[in-house]
């Protein structure tokens, strides 16, 4: 992706909502009449998923606060010697540092809009217990074999891909391609293309669990509504204590604000993980394409290096 974009200043999402209503007649449309969502986007943001506790129920920062947050986010901090971050490759060597990429500016204090405190609902006792089991297993066996490593390190799936699709540390590019009966949402990392059928009613086919669930979409006016269930039961979503349940439900709503921006809203409902459903939204902003191929598995040096390092530690009588 083009690494030289500075962030662009956008109005607040509250203002954008009124723009949406005003510009409805001027939205770019497909040859079959629906708003065109197609293009290359970034969802890189400086807005945290969860609101800092001290902000309470305050949804928006002041201009001064937002600018200060932006400055902090764009400041490159020195890594501490002896930490994992310190021996990691330099993100700015590869155009991956936040300050090198187009980042959507916002006054929002959190991506989460519901519950009102902008924070994830409390985890269920069941999820906490499951999470504890997983951590205990990993502490003992986490380096035994490739299968004990995380799904992202194994290049199988990255949690931010969702649904819900959430911003992550880098490579936040998304490509949307649409035909009359399908829409594809392709995350740069790790080249996962969700092909979503557009239908009048929910599909009836009995499908096996899928890594990103099975989705279907429908148009409600100019908003594309996507419903997803049938997850793998193996992916722990961002901020969750344990993997999302197979029959969890996610609803996404995508609408075009103007030629440059899409609004992405979502609601997650997994009663095994959280005491209540939670919702959020953010803005995706157009970027210059293309999105390059993220060949995670083909170039996976980290996984074998971690395992061989673990074996070397064990050969010296240590525990990785």
């Amino acid at each position: 992706m083009n690494a030289s974009f500075p962030y662009r200043t956008l109005s607040t999402i509250a203002l954008l909502s009124s723009a949406l209503a005003a510009a409805a007649d001027e939205l770019p449309r497909t040859s079959w009449g629906t708003p065109s969502l197609q293009g290359y986007y970034t969802n890189a943001t400086i807005v945290p998923l969860e609101r800092p506790v001290d902000l309470g129920e305050r949804e928006f920062l002041t201009e001064e606060e937002a600018q200060a947050r932006l400055e902090r986010a764009m400041t490159v901090t020195e890594t501490q010697p002896g930490t994992e971050a310190d021996v990691h490759y330099q993100f700015d060597d590869y155009g991956m540092a936040r300050a090198q990429n187009q980042t959507v500016f916002s006054h929002r204090s959190s991506i989460i809009t519901s519950p009102k405190n902008g924070r994830l609902p409390p985890a269920t006792p069941e999820a906490l217990a499951r999470g504890q089991e997983i951590r205990a297993w990993r502490a003992e066996h986490g380096f035994d074999s490739a299968k004990e490593r995380s799904l992202s390190e194994r290049c199988i799936i990255w949690a931010h891909e969702g649904p819900p699709l959430l911003p992550t540390g880098y490579n936040n590019h998304v490509q949307i391609m649409e035909s009359k009966n399908h829409i594809v949402i392709m995350s740069e990392m790790i080249h996962d293309a969700r092909v979503i059928p557009i239908r009048d009613s929910a599909p009836t086919a009995v499908l096996p669990p899928q890594w990103q669930g099975s989705s279907w979409g429908r148009w409600e006016g100019d908003t594309l509504v996507i419903e997803t269930t049938g997850f793998s039961g193996r992916v722990t979503p961002t901020g969750a204590a344990a993997p999302m349940a197979v029959d969890a439900k996610v609803v996404e709503r995508i609408s075009r604000i103007d030629a440059e921006t899409l609004k992405y809203e979502f609601t997650v409902n997994d009663p095994t993980l959280w005491e209540a459903p939670w919702s959020g939204d953010y803005v995706m902003q157009a970027v210059e394409g293309p999105v390059f191929e993220y060949a995670c598995h083909e170039g996976n040096y980290g996984l074998p290096n971690n395992l061989s390092g673990a074996r070397a530690i064990e050969a010296k009588g240590g525990k990785p």
Binding site: F143, D144, S145, A146, P304, L307, S308, R311, E314
Partner: peptide
């Protein structure tokens, strides 16, 4: 790919 690097 990685079986030779496992603990087993």
């Amino acid at each position: 790919l990685y079986g030779h690097l496992s603990k087993d």
